[in-house]
Computed example of a mutant assay.
Amino acid sequence: MKADIHPNYRPVVFKDTSSDFAFLCRSTASSKETITWEDGNEYPLIKLDVSSKSHPFFTGKQSMADTTGKIDKFRQRYGISK
């Protein structure tokens, strides 16, 4: 194997800001922010907007849009017939 061509994997904490859920895993992502984890060690912190704890698909709070009503309103507004 060639030396110095592989990325530097290290433990990083990813935190979902919308659900206050955090997890520790290995990553090459870098950050200037740090956080003290449950084991007492300090790790780089990467903030996320969405994770499996806040995404509607995983939480089961997915809402279906009423597309038929919107289509009918659009057709009425612009005089488009079917």
Results as ranks from 00 to 15, higher is better:
Lys70Ser: 12
Lys2Ser: 14
His55Ser: 11
Lys47Gln: 12
Ser27Trp: 06
Lys61Glu: 13
Asp20Glu: 14
Ser54Asn: 05
Ile5Gly: 03
Leu48Glu: 14
Asp39Pro: 08
Thr28Pro: 01
Leu45Glu: 03
Gln76Val: 05
Ser51Cys: 11
Lys53Arg: 13
Tyr43Val: 11
Ser51Thr: 12
Lys32Arg: 10
Gly69Asp: 05
Tyr9Arg: 07
Gln62Ala: 13
Tyr9Val: 04
Pro7Cys: 04
Val12Ala: 02
Lys53Gly: 00
Ser30Val: 12
Arg26Ser: 11
Leu45Ala: 05
His55Ile: 01
Arg10Met: 02
Ser54His: 04
Phe23Ala: 01
Pro7Asp: 05
Tyr78Phe: 15
Gln62Phe: 13
Pro11Ala: 10
Glu33Cys: 04
Lys47Ser: 12
Glu33Tyr: 08
Arg10Tyr: 02
Ile5Pro: 00
Met64Ala: 07
Phe21Trp: 15
Cys25Arg: 15
Asp39Ile: 05
Glu38Gln: 13
Tyr78Leu: 14
Gly69Ile: 04
Tyr78Thr: 09
Asp39Arg: 08
Thr34Phe: 10
Glu33Ala: 11
Ala22Phe: 11
Asp49Gln: 14
Ala22His: 11
Leu48Phe: 10
Phe74Val: 05
Phe21Asn: 12
Arg10Gly: 04
Lys82Asp: 13
Glu38Met: 11
Asp20Ser: 14
Arg75Thr: 06
Asp4Thr: 03
Asp4Met: 08
Lys32Met: 11
Lys32Ile: 09
Leu24Lys: 15
Lys15Phe: 04
Ala3Trp: 08
Asp4His: 08
Ser81Gly: 09
Phe74Ile: 07
Gln62Thr: 10
Thr28Glu: 09
Lys82Thr: 08
Glu33Val: 03
Thr36Ser: 04
His6Arg: 11
Thr67Glu: 05
Phe21Lys: 08
Thr28Ile: 15
Ile80Pro: 06
Asp66Gly: 08
Phe23Val: 05
Thr17Cys: 02
Arg10Trp: 00
His55Glu: 13
Pro56Asn: 04
Phe74Asp: 01
Lys70Met: 09
His55Gln: 03
Met1Gly: 15
Lys53Trp: 06
Lys70Ala: 15
Arg77Cys: 00
Lys47Trp: 00
Tyr9Ala: 00
Asp39Gln: 01
Ser63Lys: 15
Glu38Ala: 09
Lys70Gly: 07
Asp20His: 12
Thr17Gln: 13
Lys15Tyr: 09
His6Tyr: 13
Ile46Lys: 05
Gly40Asn: 06
Ser51Val: 03
Pro44Ala: 13
Ser27His: 07
Met64Val: 11
Ser51Glu: 02
Leu45Thr: 02
Lys82Leu: 12
Gly79Arg: 14
Pro11Tyr: 03
Pro44Val: 07
Gly60Ala: 12
Ser30Thr: 15
Cys25Ser: 15
